[in-house]
């Protein structure tokens, strides 16, 4: 039963890849401006479950892809998160320019494996680099970002006490790579501050009947580049806990990212998402495949 379930879950990731990657290659055919980006491999990071460049759950200050000054880059990704009682599937794409602007789209489907049913949301993200260069300046690279989110069907979020079916997260992120920092390896540190009204990142709507204020949450990542192409890291994401019907916990994960080349990367992680909608201790695997132009 379990094996069948896991196979089913992995099949859905494969299916999402099959949907997401052709979009990328369609871009390859239609936009002649895409040459391989000039930035150093791995400096684009991965793509979060919300579509922005970063780790798995924390947006970083990096701009998606490998485009440097005056260069375009595009990415497409498919991600699956398989915890005890839920499955999150995400497909997403991004377009970036000048190593400064990033636009992203992500479509999340959240299967309520045990309860039955599903939730979903669409996320439109923008990101703008304010200052600093990840590799080259003493000042960290600092970016300002926003994520506009809207849930598919407000029935369940409303029933559990959410006020709105859409919300806007605004965040500022600072990232820096320290060369030769630990055992001759380069280290990336990232800190993000986010203003949000989202319950469970928005899957359970935004705000509550009792409280419609923005909450400020802290998110952090640290990674060591074991080789030029392999990064081992940890992430922590603080989350609001506003809905009365069930507790919401902070999220964390340990990840291994393999940047095979500037066109393909695979990120695997073990994530602890805590309590979700009354189901305690939700843990499981995260897999993300990303293509970059």
């Amino acid at each position: 039963m379990n094996i069948a379930m896991n196979t089913l879950k992995l099949n859905s990731l494969a299916w999402n890849c099959a949907k997401a990657l052709p979009c990328l290659f369609l871009l390859l055919g239609t936009v002649p401006a895409f040459a391989e980006g000039s930035r150093v491999v791995a400096t684009g990071g991965g793509t979060t479950i919300e579509g922005s460049a970063g780790g798995g759950i924390v947006p970083w200050a990096v701009i998606n892809g490998y485009g440097s000054s005056d260069e375009w880059s595009a990415t497409a990704m498919a991600t699956g998160v398989y915890v005890d009682d839920f499955t999150l599937n995400v497909i997403g794409a991004s377009l970036s320019f000048d190593n400064r602007f990033e636009l992203s789209l992500a479509r999340q489907t959240f299967d309520l494996d045990t309860m039955g049913g599903e939730l979903g949301q669409d996320i439109f993200g923008i990101k703008y680099k304010l200052a600093g260069e990840l590799l080259y300046t003493a000042m960290p690279q600092i970016t300002l970002g926003a994520q506009y989110k809207r849930v598919d069907d407000f029935a369940i979020p409303q029933a559990v006490g959410a006020r709105s079916d859409w919300g806007l997260d605004v965040y500022i992120a600072a990232s820096k790579v320290f060369f030769d920092a630990v055992a001759g390896r380069n280290v990336l540190l990232n800190g993000t501050v986010r203003a949000t009204k989202a319950n469970q990142t928005g899957l359970l709507g935004f705000g509550t009947q009792a409280n419609n204020d923005y909450q400020f949450v802290l998110e952090a990542s640290a990674a060591v580049l074991l080789t030029d192409n392999l990064a081992l890291g940890i992430e922590y994401r603080q989350k609001p806990n506003e809905l009365a019907f069930a507790r919401e916990d902070d999220w964390q994960d340990v990840f291994l990212a393999w940047f095979i080349n500037k066109h393909l990367s695979v990120v695997t992680a073990y994530a602890n998402l805590g309590s979700i909608a009354g189901f305690a201790d939700q843990q499981g695997w995260y897999v993300s495949v990303e293509g970059t132009l």
Binding site: E133, L135, T137, A138, F179, D180, A183, G184, N186
Partner: peptide, 18 residues
């Protein structure tokens, strides 16, 4: 050149960016 040596050189060259 080993990774740690490469990183040590890059560490000294990177600040010349500006």
């Amino acid at each position: 050149i080993p990774l740690s040596t490469r990183n040590a050189l890059l560490k000294r060259l990177a600040p010349m960016y500006s």
